[in-house]
């Protein structure tokens, strides 16, 4: 009878290494169920070594072993280990701070042209909505959905409109509902804007334009009743971050549309993949801006009625946002 290790090299190969594979397997099972943080320091230090050993064993086994079960085992072990060693990393708080300090403002600056274009479409919507309503008030209803207008239409008196600008929230939790509703509603629109980007950017242009139309039409309505200053004082404190966020989401969608329609020398899939991450960075930042806008809209607007304070908050927001995008993340750290 032949000794097995004389029979096949692959037998000896496996016999000498299987203890380390089993050790890696144990470490992976622990890491998969309780996270890398649950590993002991020894296991953690050993992990990269065991991972590389498993990969080189896989590579060798492919060359010398015809044991199918062994190959399947090593393939699955290496895949698990790869996922564990090269999986997603990072502490949430550090990642969030880095995102706000560097990634977000840098991505916006890097794609300034798209942001400018989206802003222009939004502004075009505002101007069109304003012009149409100012000259043909009968079109107001088809521009502003009744749910959004809430009685603020051409038939309303100046007093009604003024009341709308100074409405009181009577309960703090009613305000909380308002804020949360707006956050959900607006953030969902922003995400939709981004997600529609791969549809060649056309739905994004439409969303940007119609959002602008609504704002323009309502502005024209208030201007017509001599409430211009009050209206802008009401809109702009939350409007600055909100409109910017909408423009940013639109820009992200347009970037994808551009990558899809004009991939230059890349394959379309590759072109989309390259734009995916910066576009998502911009959308995530925009969601944060929408959260700020919703807080202002839900609380500040209901609690503070002074036109002077409202105007200065709007101006403050504008300066803050401009400074943020102009300077944040400029310095390499």
């Amino acid at each position: 009878m032949n000794a097995p290790d004389k029979v096949t090299r692959s037998f000896a190969f496996r016999r000498d290494r299987q203890a380390s594979w089993r050790r890696l397997e144990r470490t992976l099972t622990a890491a998969e169920s309780h996270g890398l943080g649950s590993l002991t320091e020894k296991d953690l230090l050993e992990l990269p070594t065991l991972h590389r050993a498993a990969l080189s064993a896989l590579s060798a086994a492919r060359a010398i072993s015809l044991d199918q079960a062994l190959l399947a085992y090593l393939e699955s072990l290496a895949a698990r280990s790869h996922a564990c060693v090269h999986g997603v990393r990072g502490r949430p708080l550090t990642a969030l701070l880095r995102f706000l300090r560097e990634s977000f403002p840098r991505a916006v600056r890097a794609h300034g042209a798209a942001v400018a274009f989206a802003t222009a479409i939004l502004a075009l919507g505002v101007v069109t909505g304003f012009a149409v309503t100012a000259t043909h008030p009968e079109y107001y209803d088809s521009i502003v959905p009744p749910g959004l207008a809430q009685g603020r239409d051409p038939s309303a008196s100046t007093e009604d409109l003024r009341e709308g600008l100074y409405s009181d929230g009577d309960l703090v939790d009613a305000l909380a509902l308002f804020a949360s509703f707006l956050f959900q509603h607006n953030a969902q629109i922003g995400i939709l804007c981004f997600a529609l980007g791969f549809a060649a950017g056309i739905p994004v242009l439409w969303l940007l334009f119609t959002n602008g139309l609504t704002l323009g039409a309502m502005s024209a309505l208030h201007h017509g009743h001599g409430l211009a200053l009050e209206w802008w004082a009401w809109v702009l404190p939350h409007g600055v971050p909100e409109l910017l966020a909408i423009a940013l989401c639109g820009a992200a969608g347009l970037m994808q549309g551009h990558a899809l329609l004009l991939p230059e020398r890349l394959a379309r899939a590759e072109s989309l993949r390259r734009i995916g991450v910066p576009a998502a960075t911009i959308v995530l930042g925009a969601v944060a801006l929408l959260a700020i806008a919703a807080l202002i809209e839900g609380f500040f607007r209901q609690l503070v009625h002074s036109v002077a304070i409202r105007t200065s908050v709007a101006a403050g927001m504008f300066i803050l946002v401009t400074a943020y995008f102009a300077f944040a993340g400029r310095r390499e750290r």
């Binding site: 029979v7 496996r14 699955s76 994808q256 995916g276």
Partner: peptide, 28 residues
Amino acid sequence: RIGDLLAGTLVVREPRHALQADLVAGAA
């Protein structure tokens, strides 16, 4: 799906294969 195209990701199977006895070891 489109999300995978944008993100450059794939969804793959992760089968679990246990280390089975080596059939060559039977003789030993």
